[in-house]
Design a protein around this nucleic acid. Structure first.
Lengths: 204, 204
DNA sequence: GTCTATACAACGATAGAC
DNA sequence: GTCTATCGTTGTATAGAC
């Protein structure tokens, strides 16, 4: 009965509708926040009824998670590609990571808003994660492995890669969060600062 | 009419009721999260009706902000006191800051939960702040001034104190957030790691 | 398979009686 | 000062048209 179980053979219209609804949801969350992006508002923008939305997505949470995944995939994909380009040199890779993280968020404010809003929606637990720490798709581990590779290459000092990865990710999030709250700050200058900050912290 | 304007001469019962309601709110948020801490639930625990709660606090947001302020004051007070003890030596002060930030959050999980839950409640804007960055009471600036003092004393390298303060605060938040999500991690070991991480990053 | 229509409980908020 | 009664809106569930 429920078409969401029919993952093996999704209809054309089903696929198109899901994409459209995800798009509307992203727009609405970016514009007015998660709570203001009610099912009614999403349905109205998409031109259907509330119940029609719940036909394609079992719940509001289901829909917002789909929008979240869509946006996060683009984010992690971009960062991973940037880092992979400089995969040979650990120091360059770390710099590329910092620049990619900040550059993407600078250029995609609405996507960032969706990520934070969705992440911060309490999923019934204490599991609060800032954007830099979320381990969807193993991206949280990517930085830790980058750091570990640098240690093996003898370019970074001794430390626990997992903990330092959290620290570096958190440092980036902290600076970006400030920029989100007050776009007047010079994010590119902060990125430079952050680059040397991270390199100094892990250097031998 | 509304007693909340009457700040000059609050009734005894008024003060007591407000304190009681704030206490109930803190407990409920810590136990079940912000959304689950509905006005009905708070009223039930306090032994009054929903509307009676809204008499003492104009809105739910008003009440949760009061609980937030109450809890945050204790937090910032503790950290400020710890740092002031080592105010003479910038390096010791920075270490004290890191230890105090982590130590308090380790020992007061329920308070931390209230802070994050309240902070994350979207107040209609993009103003997302992680616990370490919030500038209530000028605590956000405290770290920046600490760093600046270290520069003047010639013990820290050249950098923008504001940006690096955000980075250090974010690094702490990142590690603590991971511990909140998975209490299995050794937070004390992470604190050691974070101490040298921060010192290395700002050293000449 | 896709959708409209309708109903429901719970929420935050308000007005007004006592 | 505290309560009851009520309102509009939210997310969700079900029935049934096409």
């Amino acid at each position: 009965m429920t078409p969401r179980r029919n993952d093996g053979a999704p209809t054309f219209t089903e696929q198109a509708r899901r994409r459209q609804l995800v798009e509307c949801t992203i727009d609405l969350i970016a514009e007015k926040g998660l709570t203001a992006a009610s099912l009614s508002a999403i349905a109205e923008r998409a031109g259907l009824s509330k119940a029609a939305v719940l036909y394609h997505f079992t719940s509001k949470d289901n829909l917002t998670q789909a929008a979240f995944a869509h946006v996060l995939d683009a984010f992690t994909g971009y960062v991973a590609a940037c880092v992979a380009e400089r995969g040979d040199d650990p120091r360059a890779a770390l710099r590329a990571y910092v620049r990619a993280m900040i550059g993407y968020q600078r250029d995609h404010r609405r996507h960032v808003r969706v990520i934070t809003e969705t992440l911060l929606d309490d999923h019934g637990g204490t599991r609060f994660r800032a954007p830099g720490q979320h381990d969807v798709g193993g991206r949280g581990r990517a930085l830790a492995e980058l750091l570990e590779a640098g240690q093996r290459a003898g370019q970074f000092r001794e430390f626990d890669p997992g903990t330092v990865a959290l620290a570096v990710g958190g440092a980036i999030d902290g600076v970006v969060a400030q920029w989100l709250a007050d776009p007047g700050v010079d994010l590119d200058a902060a990125a430079d600062e952050l680059e040397t900050f991270a390199l100094r912290a892990v250097a031998r």
